[in-house]
Write a protein that binds this DNA or RNA. Structure first.
Lengths: 348, 348
DNA sequence: TTGAGTTACGAAAACGATTTCGGACGTGAA
DNA sequence: TTCACGTCCGAAATCGTTTTCGTAACTCAA
């Protein structure tokens, strides 16, 4: 425990002026040399660049931003509906992908948070205030007026998993993913398949489409009682709902859950009833989070490629930033892979 | 799929000049009014403030930063040794805490990443370049020269879980936590307690101290074969190590793991040997991540208060920023709570 | 009336970078 | 020699904000 003494080295910012001084040229020339403008001789450019390196020069972002309106900074907006914050098992990986790719390409990442108390600004105002070059939006309530304002602004915006007009989107292939997962279950001989889906959203809708598509292919029309709804990531709700399903007269042989966490909750319910997975009841998850491979049996799930979703979102927003006229605002779908764990048994 | 047409509304930044214009005063007066300087009349101040609100004015951070050297931006440096990136179950919650508190206090959070290829700068250079007001450092290799350079700089730095000279630290109470967890195990009658700890680090060392302290209190000296080491978060290593421990002549009745993930790996090994938890073998985790409460039986673990660690780190770095002379650089320890799951049985 | 002391405001410099424009100089052709 | 042209560089404006300093106007006591 010691009082701050402030005797330590100051890492002084070396400016263009410093370089100009030692090179005996003007600031303008230094700037042009470092930015590879054509009206500076090759010899000068080399001299200046080597001096700059030597002095440990890095452009002051604040000054540059003031003049050029470019900050090399990308905002990330994330407000979870599940109260899990950044620990959101899906989003944290998307964020990691974003971080990796933006860093690779020389951009930084800044959170555009929920407005603070003192100076409450909207998301867009926050972006303008911070001069971010673009924004990636995920997990928010896309009907919120503030989000609409942001998406409709001139700012380059990329959304994750939610298609909006005139705005680029990176999304997981929910239809195909759920189709393939269901097809896998059916290929194991299951015919009495229950599906507990998440709360309504574009993601949920797509997965429903995938589920029913696969079922229809086999000519199966599941009874209404087999289709249920719970919140995402709510293992307790999954537990209760599982008990309900297993109490049915004609009990399903396989239960499909909205995500891997819910699936674990379901497994607990099944075991607490004295049944076992997958011998008595089969289950599937969704997402393919790390924990799905750790529990026993490993959960059969559709593994979304969240890292790639994040990376692609970064590429997309940077493309919109750097080539505003040519960049196309479309929907990029990222494929995943079926992970065959041990939670789905065979029905003879 | 449509070509960007750029017909959308521009959210024009309203500047001090705009306000000055409509109020018929100078820019200087507007600035002073908004910053509550004393040399502007009350009437003027009100007029200017209301106009500013009306026009949706927010100060341009870039311009302000250029002049004042304050960006209201805090850097967060995080490089995981476990390759789990932001999905790191521990860190993602710390980050969430950081995010919540910094937002509350009007600061933003920017990642200070690993240097990118094109312009490779050190962490400190990155901070200087970005003009962050302070940095929070977590999970990095604290022996790295770059990290040392950063910590020793004049920049306000707060580290998480690693005490360094002349630098504020927020850490979990590892000694007490492990002591209490071990005491709990012993109180259940266990005497043959194995401890699989993580790779050496200050955190690991503290927990070892806690473990042996509790054991000594009971006069127990565990055999060397009971003390093992694996990487953190490596459930497969935990699986293998558990098999080894259970193959011992004199098998332990309880195995303590370095974290909850490893504990789950251990549970799998125990079950695969035809034994059950906690009837045949008891287990404990560490951290208290959400999944510990989802698996069955729930894992008895020491729940670190990671959200609060993050929030406290934010408070600390902001204190160092706003009161550089008076702020004290010390080590703040955040307590956790014992979570009594069902993974530890009673030995009669 | 005079002088000192407030009060309320504006002019201007500064932060560090980019960019426009113009000028000095050298080269080659007529 | 002269003129047109290209090459290389610098002066100065600019981005939006903060801050110092100067000053006009007003108050009040002597």
């Amino acid at each position: 425990m010691s009082i701050e003494t402030d005797t330590r080295e100051v890492k002084a910012m070396t400016s263009l002026k410093d370089i100009a001084q030692v090179c005996g040229v003007s600031v303008a020339t230094v700037s042009k040399a470092l930015n590879n403008h054509s009206d500076v001789s090759e010899a000068r450019r080399e001299q200046i660049k080597s001096k700059a390196r030597e002095l440990g020069y890095f452009p002051n972002q604040a000054a540059r931003a003031l003049k050029t309106r470019s900050t090399m900074d990308i905002g990330v907006l994330f407000a979870d509906a599940h109260n899990s914050g950044l620990t959101h098992p899906y989003f944290s990986q998307v964020l990691e992908g974003l971080k990796i790719r933006t860093e690779e390409r020389g951009y930084d990442l800044t959170f555009i948070g929920i407005k603070s108390k003192r100076n409450k600004m909207t998301f867009l105002e926050h972006c303008v205030y911070r001069n971010v070059d673009g924004v990636v939006v995920a997990c928010v309530d896309f009907n919120q007026p503030e989000v609409l304002e942001l998406v409709r602004s001139r700012l380059p915006v990329v959304t994750i998993d939610h298609v909006m007009d005139d705005c680029a989107t990176i999304s997981s292939n929910n239809v195909e993913g759920m189709t393939r997962l269901t097809q896998y279950v059916l290929s194991k001989g299951h015919r009495k398949v229950a599906y507990i889906h998440g709360r309504p959203s574009s993601t949920t809708n797509e997965r429903m489409v995938g589920f029913f598509r696969a079922m229809e292919e086999k000519g199966i029309d599941p009874p209404e009682a087999y289709i249920r709804e719970i919140p995402y990531l709510d293992d307790e709700a999954a537990y209760d709902m599982t008990l309900e399903l297993l109490a049915l007269e004609d009990r399903p042989t396989c239960i499909m859950y909205p995500d891997d966490y819910c699936c674990i909750g379901g497994i607990n319910a099944i075991r607490d009833m004295g049944l076992s997975v997958p011998e008595d009841v089969s289950v599937t998850g969704y997402d393919g989070v790390p924990i799905a491979r750790v529990v026993s049996p490993k959960i059969t799930t559709y593994q979304q490629n969240m890292l790639e979703i994040g990376q692609t979102a970064a590429d997309k927003v940077i493309e919109l930033i750097e080539r505003p006229r040519t960049a196309i605002k479309n929907n990029t779908v990222i494929g995943g892979t079926l992970f065959e764990g041990g939670s789905v048994g065979t029905i003879k």
